[in-house]
């Protein structure tokens, strides 16, 4: 009998949110397939942090991160020590550390790998992985060749599942990563400079249910201030096009599209965004798309549900007021 594993990273003393989601997914698949589910967590104070996963999976293995060694190198070593990739399934998240881990494992083991999963389930023929390709223009189902009982790695997109606890709490065991076979992987990397991120929490666009996107039409940082007010009124996050990021009006981490992030919010509100294909591929699976543009023929009208023709400097503040008023009225 195989095991469905997941690997997560310690953040703020617990597992990342993606780690909790993947633990839930591992448990769900294992239940459907009559297999075991287990989670690996790697980071500082891993045993304590691992406790945050016990609500979601029966078994948690915790490994301490090694100073001066990249997270993905340590995690790779732990997986090589405890997971049988010929038979077991390993779920990792499509955030940078997870991608590095998946890549390292493929480079070292030649294990099968499926990326960009939006759904993972167990059916009569074994594991079936749903993927969304080309910005949602194509939806595919895939398997590991050889069918039932074949293991491999699946990189799962954030937000593919909601974390739900198991009812029965699991246990945490400490594991010590084995021989440093992977020293070369970690390399002799020296840290030259480290400027920590400011703690002001910018809501992650991949996790937000409502995203207000800004483009070149927003004109500058002041324009983005108006968008942030609208996003606050709606309880959403602010995203952007590459044009706005390149202009330095907003961080690259907020960019949506081909070279930025792919988001799938319930509502995407595009302000001063023409709708270029490289942007479209990052948002086209949003539930509802509303655009505000002064050009009635902007290409975004081809895939938005609603296009408001007007100057965003007039429409956005009016919309913020209207949203606040409606929210206040409906209590």
């Amino acid at each position: 009998m195989g095991t469905i594993w997941t690997v997560s990273r310690v953040t703020a003393g617990g597992s990342t949110r993606a780690g909790l989601e993947l633990a839930t997914l591992a448990r769900t698949i294992a239940e459907a397939g009559g297999q075991d589910a287990a989670a690996i967590i790697v980071g500082p104070d891993a045993a304590d942090a691992g406790a945050s996963l016990t609500a979601f999976v029966p078994r948690v293995l915790a490994a301490e991160s090694v100073a001066g060694r990249p997270w993905a190198a340590t995690a790779t070593q732990v997986v090589l020590d405890v997971v049988d990739l010929g038979r077991d399934v390993l779920l990792v998240t499509a955030e940078p550390e997870g991608l590095a881990l998946a890549g390292f494992l493929v480079g070292v083991t030649e294990a099968p790998l499926l990326v960009n999963a939006t759904s993972v389930r167990w059916d009569a023929d074994g594991l079936s992985i749903g993927m969304s390709a080309y910005g949602g223009r194509l939806e595919t189902q895939s398997r590991f060749a050889g069918g039932r009982g074949r293991g491999g790695i699946v990189v799962v997109r954030p937000g593919a599942i909601t974390a739900t606890s198991a009812g029965v709490p699991g246990t945490v065991e400490m594991v010590v990563p084995g021989a440093d076979a992977l020293d070369a992987l970690a390399g002799d990397v020296t840290l030259v400079e480290h400027v920590p991120a400011a703690p002001e929490a910018v809501m992650a666009i991949e996790e937000a249910r409502i995203v207000v996107g800004g483009g070149r039409g927003v004109g500058g940082p002041e324009g983005f201030h108006l968008l942030r007010e609208l996003a606050d009124a709606l309880g959403g996050a602010v995203g952007a096009t590459r044009a706005a990021v390149d202009a330095g009006w907003i961080d690259y981490g907020q960019q949506i599209g081909q070279t930025g992030k792919t988001v799938r919010p319930d509502l995407y509100l595009a302000c001063g965004i023409s709708g270029a294909i490289q942007h479209k591929v990052g948002v086209q699976t949003a539930g509802t798309i509303v655009a505000i543009d002064r050009d009635a023929d902007a290409p975004i009208r081809e895939f938005a549900d609603l296009l408001v023709v007007g100057d965003l400097f007039d429409v956005v503040p009016a919309l913020t007021d209207a949203v606040r008023a409606r929210r206040a009225a409906s209590g």
């Binding site: 099968p112 895939s142 590991f144 491999g152």
Partner: peptide, 10 residues
């Protein structure tokens, strides 16, 4: 080691 079993265009 992987195979696509179906594809649909939404």
């Amino acid at each position: 080691t992987t195979q696509v079993t179906s594809a649909v265009v939404p």
